[in-house]
């Protein structure tokens, strides 16, 4: 794997985010209940957790435990129905008070990165162009940074390849580079190794581990116990609550 670029060379912005209590993410009594017809379905029921800078936090639990809901709330893609949540200094929710959508968009644009199980690359764009997409919203070009990141994830020779010309592991590396292009403080990873073979899974996880060691905070959702053991902190979710051993 190419190591020419150190993450900290180009993500100083993420390093110096200081919250009131010194934590990057702080959630208290975080809840999310969905209403389907007349039924109320609680997906997350008053969870408390925090994430520090550079911490590798694993959300472990079976399907339906509330992992994706947690990631969506932290990422500002969804709004909690109860509790308080602050992310990178932004109060996302405090009881019934929620941050404006424009603030949440800015939060994602400036401080957060996402990777998904299904890569979600744009099929008509090259690897390099896919990585540059988040910069469009910030009116930046960042071609050099995108190239450097692709080299960092081992795809320096695949810059002009489109997703249909890449393997699953390569696509996930492109998705990872895309998530890092805005120099985030926190990476939200929703089962990013779920569709990969064991070797590729270990490579991607190893890469994430390196990034965390360099100071990137990661919230990693998985149902894989073996992977969970390799995180700094494991939050075991079951039926929308955090269970302790």
């Amino acid at each position: 794997m190419a190591r020419g670029v150190h993450l900290t060379d180009h993500r100083n912005k993420g390093w110096f985010i200081v919250t009131r209590n010194g934590q990057l993410v702080h959630a208290t009594g975080l809840s999310r209940t969905y209403t389907v017809g007349r039924r109320e379905i609680p997906a997350l029921r008053g969870v408390d957790f925090s994430i520090n800078r550079g911490e590798f936090v694993v959300l472990l639990g079976p399907s339906g435990a509330g992992k994706t809901t947690t990631l969506n709330l932290v990422g500002g893609l969804d709004r909690p129905t109860g509790g308080s949540l602050s992310v990178a200094g932004e109060v996302v929710a405090d009881g019934s008070v929620h941050a404006k959508e424009s603030r949440l968009n800015a939060l994602r644009r400036e401080h957060l990165g996402f990777v998904f199980a299904e890569f979600h690359l744009l099929p008509t764009l090259s690897a390099l162009e896919n990585v540059q997409v988040p910069l469009i919203w910030a009116d930046e070009s960042g071609r050099d940074r995108a190239e450097a990141l692709l080299c960092r994830v081992g795809l320096g020779h695949r810059l002009t390849h489109r997703p249909d010309e890449l393997s699953g592991g390569e696509m996930q590396r492109v998705a990872l580079a895309r998530a890092l292009i805005n120099q985030p403080a926190l990476l939200l990873a929703d089962e990013p190794t779920a569709n990969l073979d064991t070797n590729t899974r270990d490579e991607i996880f190893g890469l994430l581990r390196e990034l965390s060691d360099e100071g990137l905070a990661i919230l990693f959702a998985t149902h894989d116990h073996e992977l969970a053991e390799r995180g700094d902190t494991v939050l075991r979710l079951s039926d929308g609550v955090i269970v302790h051993d």
């Binding site: 994602r108 644009r109 400036e110 998904f116 744009l122 469009i136």
Partner: peptide
Amino acid sequence: TREIGVLRATGAGRLH
């Protein structure tokens, strides 16, 4: 639709 969701996740606002 899903692509639009991905773009929103990368920081795009409704206006974008």
